[in-house]
Structure formats: structure tokens, C-alpha cells
């Protein structure tokens, strides 16, 4: 199989989708491993950018990020292939459960396994956040933004859309009126 071909794209995202328990953020550690470290399809910074766009565009975040990375690698068809890859495993699993085992979620072993998986996801995402912090928070301004957004989101449940819009407006104003920053965002 050719690395970086359509089949590779599909299978990589199928692997990511098949082991993402609990929504878009739980996908982050898998993306860092498969997409950033193993295949160099995107950098950590780009992943963050995709999450930012995924937050304020419609649809499921995991799908949005898959479309983004597929599109970056292989254009429009790549975006579609990566998206189909990320949803394929859960599609077949749900189909099977809906058709055959309707009380799957009530099974006691499933419940215990899931409790364990939730702990692993918590540790994996905590680790992922530490990696992201190193790449995205580069100065006092970054720390201030992080702390402010963390508190606004945690305590006041401010919608992610407003956070993203606010950060963009602030970034544009800051770039316009404080041009002393060197090197740009890269």
C-alpha cells in the first residue's frame, strides 16, 4: 500500500474513528500520533487551526477535522475519502448493534470496560493538551488568553463560537496596532 495514497488516507482515518470514544476531543491523541507523528500530514499548530474552524462551522468536529486533513493531502476527493474513513467503523458497529444486540449498552462488562476506557481517554487527552500547550502558548499574551478562555468557558460556559470569534477579532486588532511582534505566527 502506498503511503499517502487514498487507501492509506481511508485506513488511517478508519483506525482513528474506530478508537475514538467520546466525541471530537477524544480524537486528538489519535490524530497527534497518526497524522502528526507517523505521517506528517499536518503539524500540531494546524490541528489546532482545524479544531478552531470545526468549532464554528456546522457539523460534527471529528468529521470537520478529517475533511480538512484529507483535503490538505489530496484535494477534494481526499477530503471525502478521509471523512468516509473516519465514520466507516462506527457506521458498521452501530448498524450491527441496531440490528442485532439492542441492549448492548446495558451489559455489565461493557459498562466496566467503558469506565476503564474513559480513564484512558482522560489521560490521553490530558497528555495531548500538554503537547498543544507547548506549541500554541508562546508568550505572556498566550498565557493570558489561555487563562481567560479557560475560566470563561469553565465557569460561565461561554459558547466556543464566541471564544473563537473573540480570539480572531482580538488577534486582528493586536496584529494591527501592536506591530512590534517579530516573526509572525509561524
Amino acid at each position: 500500500m502506498k503511503k499517502g495514497g487514498y487507501l492509506d488516507l481511508f485506513l488511517t482515518f478508519a483506525r482513528i474513528g474506530g478508537f475514538t470514544f467520546g466525541g471530537g476531543y477524544a480524537m486528538l491523541p489519535m490524530l497527534q500520533k497518526e497524522v502528526v507523528e507517523n505521517r506528517n500530514w499536518a503539524t500540531e499548530e494546524e490541528l489546532l487551526d482545524y479544531y478552531a474552524v470545526g468549532q464554528c462551522t456546522p457539523g460534527v468536529i471529528a468529521v470537520n477535522v478529517a475533511t480538512f486533513i484529507g483535503h490538505k493531502e489530496k484535494g477534494i476527493l481526499g477530503g471525502i475519502v478521509a471523512t468516509l474513513g473516519v465514520i466507516a467503523p462506527s457506521f458498521f458497529i452501530i448498524l450491527l448493534l441496531a440490528a442485532v444486540i439492542r441492549n448492548f449498552a446495558d451489559n455489565v462488562y461493557v459498562a466496566h470496560a467503558l469506565a476503564g476506557i474513559r480513564v484512558a481517554v482522560a489521560a490521553l487527552v490530558a497528555n495531548a493538551v500538554m503537547k498543544l500547550w507547548k506549541k500554541s502558548v508562546k508568550d505572556i499574551l498566550g498565557i493570558a488568553i489561555f487563562v481567560l478562555v479557560f475560566l470563561l468557558s469553565l465557569i460561565f460556559s461561554v459558547s466556543p463560537i464566541w471564544v473563537v470569534v473573540g480570539a480572531i477579532v482580538f488577534g486582528l486588532l493586536y496584529g494591527r496596532f501592536a506591530p512590534s511582534r517579530k516573526g509572525g505566527a509561524k
Binding site: L48, R118, V129, F150, P160, V164, A167, G171, G184
Partner: peptide, 22 residues
């Protein structure tokens, strides 16, 4: 690039909050 410079720490914080909840 200006927009993403401030957006990245903000999104990292959003993910950190999700992590906190998990």
C-alpha cells in the same frame, strides 16, 4: 496569521476545559 496567533491559545484552553470535564 494574526488571527491564528491568538486563536491557538484560545482553542487550547477550550480543549483543556473539555479535558477537565472528561
Amino acid at each position: 496569521t494574526d488571527a491564528f496567533y491568538t486563536l491557538r491559545p484560545a482553542v487550547t484552553a477550550l480543549i483543556a476545559v473539555a479535558c477537565f470535564t472528561i
